[in-house]
């Protein structure tokens, strides 16, 4: 991609090669380490569990694994998941070219064993071998007024993806109506249904509203928020805090062994909906919440 940020596009300044390489480094960082806030939440959870319990032991093993993965630069989990890129770009940049950089980077990262080959043809069962394919990886583009490119990446594994759930309110079985109390009931039910199978303690991304497609998309986007970041909406912020405490009363515990930590955090977003529809979409992220951020300013890249 021929662009010098902060100026109009120019030919041949080499930024395209750099951007692909920056994406590879973004993937490496996401796959082989956990964000500081997630690791801190796991440390706090371990302290909170009964000494000598299976729950405490599971968290201890998890924390040792994270430290080792970071030290060796090997994947935290062998299921490196779907790479989900959330891209913020200046006016006038070609999103097609950014997408090509992301795809090339996925292939390079697979070659370097940061990613497991994870893209399977749904008709033939054949693995593409390089983490690219139809609709793979996932990319979303947002134009903004800044002169920088910001890319957030989430690696979301299959075990946790399998336990995500979508509800349509009102829900007769759960006596859940079209209000926050109803939302609370279905999120509790989704977490109960998941048990330890999504590799608990998980992080929940929840969308209230939207349609069946947009609800799930947004539920995954909010997983990019830091655990210690309050919800900008005060009503949702207090809802998140109360619900987190209720979710942990389910006592499913790490890996479903029982215990005090079932969920590390919950992030809630709202979207407008059709009068006839009231969806609640729950995206379950495993404890290995692998996200990382890249900021490109001029020719310089920084990572968080």
């Amino acid at each position: 991609m021929n662009v010098k940020l902060g100026e109009k596009m120019q030919e041949g300044d080499g930024t395209v090669d750099n951007l692909t390489e920056h994406f590879v480094e973004l993937i490496r960082r996401a796959a082989t380490d956990l964000p500081a806030d997630v690791e801190a939440a796991l440390v706090a959870a371990r302290k909170n569990e009964e000494p000598g319990s299976a729950a405490e032991g599971a968290l201890e093993t998890i924390l040792q694994n994270v430290a080792l993965a970071r030290e060796q630069s090997t994947p935290v989990c062998q299921d490196t998941g779907t790479p989900i890129f959330e891209v913020y770009h200046p006016v006038g940049l070609s999103t097609r070219e950014i997408a090509q950089c992301a795809q090339s980077a996925c292939a390079v990262a697979t070659e370097r064993s940061y990613l497991r080959p994870n893209a399977v043809d749904s008709l033939t069962g054949k693995n593409s071998g390089n983490n690219t394919g139809i609709g793979f990886p996932t990319l979303h583009f947002n134009e903004w007024d800044e002169e920088t490119i910001k890319v957030q990446l989430l690696l979301k594994g299959g075990g946790s993806e399998n336990v995500g759930a979508q509800y349509k309110l009102p829900d007769g079985r759960l006596k859940a109506g079209r209000d926050l109390d109803g939302v609370r009931s279905v999120v509790l039910d989704a977490t109960y249904q998941a048990q330890g199978k999504g590799c608990a303690p998980g992080i929940l991304g929840v969308t209230i509203g939207g349609d069946r497609g947009s609800g799930y998309v947004r539920a995954k986007q909010v997983l990019l928020r830091r655990l210690d970041e309050p919800n900008p909406d005060p009503t949702l912020d207090s809802f998140e805090r109360q619900l987190l405490s209720d979710l942990n009363r389910l006592q499913i515990g790490p890996m479903g062994f029982g215990g005090r930590t079932t969920v590390l955090g919950i992030k809630v977003a709202v979207q407008h909906r059709l009068p006839a529809c009231f969806f609640v979409s729950v995206a379950y992220m495993c404890w290995a919440c692998r996200r990382a951020m890249l900021i490109v300013r001029g020719n310089k890249a920084s990572f968080e």
Binding site: T61, I62, Q64, N65, A69, C77, Q78, C199, M255, W287
Partner: peptide, 10 residues
Amino acid sequence: SAIGGAASLI
């Protein structure tokens, strides 16, 4: 039960 996700450690 082994710990899901503890791939490097195992």
